[in-house]
């Protein structure tokens, strides 16, 4: 019984944290699914967002402004990766790794040390793990993060429906076609990376507030968690969510499911040291499924069907 109670007790926290990682995964979705780039910058930019938000708040800046600065800092990290990739011709994955590595130093310099606390007792924070129970709804961490998710999805839905947003999607879908239609694909790639990492930094800023500290290790493996959220979301809701806004919502839900499973696994008493290994294995298998389907399970259709 005690396991079940502890799972139930941990559930609200898992939902809130899952939604925060869901925001991160939405950022990743832009590069991974729309731009067709695996952007490893996110492992560093998540901490950058957290570090900037924490340090500026400690320095006395109003929290909303500190969060805006965190987003801008995240966009800068995406800008750097974008320049590495488009202007310097470095393959996208390597460009992301280079930025990520340099961000480790940058994040340490921003924070001054590996860990910076931001206690909810001393600062008026938007979200905190203290605000899960016995608080009015509008202060509840789940509610606040959910509001962020909804507003973010609404903005992205609008943006990717605009002329410019469509040209970004085209860039990710077909570079040749985009250039033939007069789209500056290099510029668009940089903008896409900036947008994505800005959102990732926002989730970092929220996570730092939620857990009450920023840590130089906090973004490690973020891309795997983000991919897991995207994959889970697609696996569970892919059949019913076809609209772009709902697809993004599915990604956020994917983050929530990931964290609920994560909590259950912890409550079951599995060594937490093994969790990253497990996450990576699960993601690897899910990434392999489309390939396996194509290679080992595809049956040629009987009879040709030729359309003009």
């Amino acid at each position: 019984m005690s396991i079940i109670t502890s799972i139930i007790n941990a559930l609200p926290g898992a939902v809130a944290q899952g939604l925060i990682w869901g925001i991160m995964a939405i950022g990743l979705y832009i590069t991974y699914k729309l731009l067709n780039i695996s952007d490893l910058t996110v492992d560093g930019s998540m901490c950058t967002g957290a570090a900037v938000c924490v340090m500026l708040t400690i320095a006395g800046m109003p929290l909303p402004l500190a969060m805006v600065c965190a987003v801008i800092a995240g966009m800068l990290t995406g800008f750097v990766t974008g320049i590495f990739h488009t202007f310097m011709g470095i393959p996208a994955i390597l460009a992301g790794i280079l930025t990520q590595l340099s961000l480790y130093s940058v994040n340490l310099k921003i924070m001054g040390k590996a860990n910076q606390a931001l206690s909810v007792r001393n600062y008026d924070l938007l979200v905190s793990l203290q605000y899960i129970r016995n608080v009015p709804l509008w202060k509840n961490a789940i509610f606040v993060v959910a509001a962020f998710v909804v507003v973010l999805i609404a903005i992205l839905y609008w943006f990717f429906g605009t002329e410019y947003g469509c040209s970004l999607r085209a860039t990710g879908s077909n570079l040749n076609m985009s250039r033939a239609q007069g789209i500056n694909t290099s510029f668009n790639t940089v903008i896409g990376l900036m947008l994505s990492n800005g959102i990732v930094a926002l989730s970092g800023a929220l996570l730092a507030q939620y857990q009450g500290f920023a840590d130089v290790q906090m973004g490690r493996g973020a891309i795997v968690i983000g991919l897991a959220a995207i994959i889970i979301g697609n696996a569970v809701f892919g059949k019913i969510f076809k609209n772009f806004a709902f697809k993004l919502l599915a990604v956020a839900f994917g983050g929530v499911i990931y964290y609920i499973v994560y909590q259950i696994v912890i409550c079951l008493g599995i060594d937490p040291d093994l969790l990253k290994l497990l996450s990576a294995m699960v993601v690897a298998v899910f990434l392999a499924i489309p390939y396996w389907k194509k290679t080992y399970f595809s049956v040629p259709k009987k009879g040709g069907n030729q359309n003009a």
């Binding site: 429906g161 605009t162 002329e163 469509c166 040209s167 007069g182 789209i183």
Partner: peptide, 17 residues
């Protein structure tokens, strides 16, 4: 796709695609 092609040579702004 056709909407993208129709805007070839135009500045792509924040109006509906």
């Amino acid at each position: 796709n056709m909407a993208l092609a129709l805007r070839r040579g135009n500045r792509r702004g924040l109006g509906w695609g």
